[in-house]
Simulated scan of single mutants.
Amino acid sequence: MRKRALFAVLAAAGVLGGLTGPAAYADDGVGDIQITDVSVNGDKDIVVGVTDKTVTVSVTATDPSGIWDADFYLWRGPDGADPYFDATDYVTPNEDTTPADCVASSPTTSTCSKTFTFEPDWWVTNADAGTWKVGVHVSANDGSWTNRWAHTTTRLQRLSQLTADAGPEPVAKGKPLTVTGKLSRANWDTLDYRGYAGQPAKLQFRKAGATTYTTVKTVNTSSTGTLTTTVTASEDGYWRWYFTGTSTTPAVKAAGDFVDVR
């Protein structure tokens, strides 16, 4: 994927839609095209680690003459902004110079898709994590078109990792048990994982033979992302940490660590 000057893409959209001038840069359209669905990454957040990740963006649209082509734009900027003047960042599909892959479900309705590849330390940096607007341009066989610069949104997130370790093992009933761990997330600037500081993580316990975890307490991560707390050992079971996530980092659960209480 390449970052590209916004004005160049907008100009292309204007040509495709048969327009010139500022009107091409706002939500607009000619004809009867109806967009019924836009999906990014299967309607899931885009979570990227330290290697490239490719996702599909698709639109389902209807027109009496049938759908000819579609294109997509991911951009960042203030709500209600004009993307021509106010976009702070902008990306285009991998195959931005070729037609979309359109599959017709009827003579009037098609689903068209393209792929985006997110490349850490190439164009994706830590500052890019967060909410992105999704623009869609759809063209019909009769020359009609519709352009929606912020039809929906998607979230680009830094992959998170979480560990848990409880000890001593085994432990005598009624004695202190220390549970440690570390919350880290992908650093797209350095292509590794760094501790996520100052984040609340839930310490959870599942007794042997049970199927669900119960939250015991909440502990904040240190400046290096580490977690540590002490509880009283009472029965055999599994201990884990659970991080509920933020807008830039997905939720994650550590694998449960079994402790034998004697």
Results as ranks from 00 to 15, higher is better:
47 V>H: 11
146 T>Q: 10
135 G>W: 06
225 G>M: 09
208 A>Y: 08
105 S>E: 09
213 Y>V: 01
59 V>L: 05
136 V>G: 05
14 G>Q: 09
103 V>C: 06
239 W>D: 02
191 L>Y: 12
208 A>R: 06
85 F>D: 14
228 T>P: 09
111 T>S: 04
101 D>N: 12
162 L>C: 07
28 D>R: 13
189 D>I: 03
223 S>L: 10
115 T>C: 13
58 S>Q: 13
147 N>T: 07
134 V>I: 09
89 D>R: 00
119 E>Q: 13
255 A>L: 11
192 D>C: 09
98 T>V: 15
142 D>L: 01
61 A>M: 07
26 A>N: 12
197 A>L: 11
30 V>F: 08
54 T>S: 03
66 G>M: 06
177 L>W: 00
252 V>W: 00
198 G>Q: 14
129 A>R: 11
67 I>W: 09
193 Y>E: 02
39 S>P: 12
56 T>N: 05
214 T>P: 05
76 R>Q: 14
70 A>R: 03
39 S>Q: 12
212 T>S: 14
203 L>I: 09
162 L>E: 02
111 T>M: 12
27 D>V: 03
26 A>F: 04
134 V>T: 05
167 G>W: 06
238 Y>A: 01
130 G>K: 02
223 S>K: 15
216 V>M: 10
131 T>N: 05
200 P>E: 05
99 P>M: 05
155 R>G: 02
91 V>C: 02
127 A>W: 15
49 G>D: 04
3 K>M: 06
61 A>N: 04
130 G>D: 06
12 A>N: 14
222 S>C: 04
80 G>K: 11
26 A>H: 01
123 W>Q: 09
226 T>Y: 13
171 V>R: 01
90 Y>K: 10
53 K>I: 04
3 K>N: 12
89 D>T: 06
134 V>A: 07
192 D>H: 05
117 T>K: 07
158 R>H: 08
112 C>Y: 03
79 D>F: 11
241 W>A: 05
141 N>W: 05
253 K>F: 03
65 S>R: 00
162 L>Q: 02
173 K>W: 03
64 P>G: 14
208 A>I: 07
12 A>C: 15
183 L>Y: 15
127 A>Q: 15
247 S>Y: 08
143 G>A: 02
160 S>E: 04
118 F>M: 10
151 H>L: 07
176 P>Y: 03
121 D>P: 07
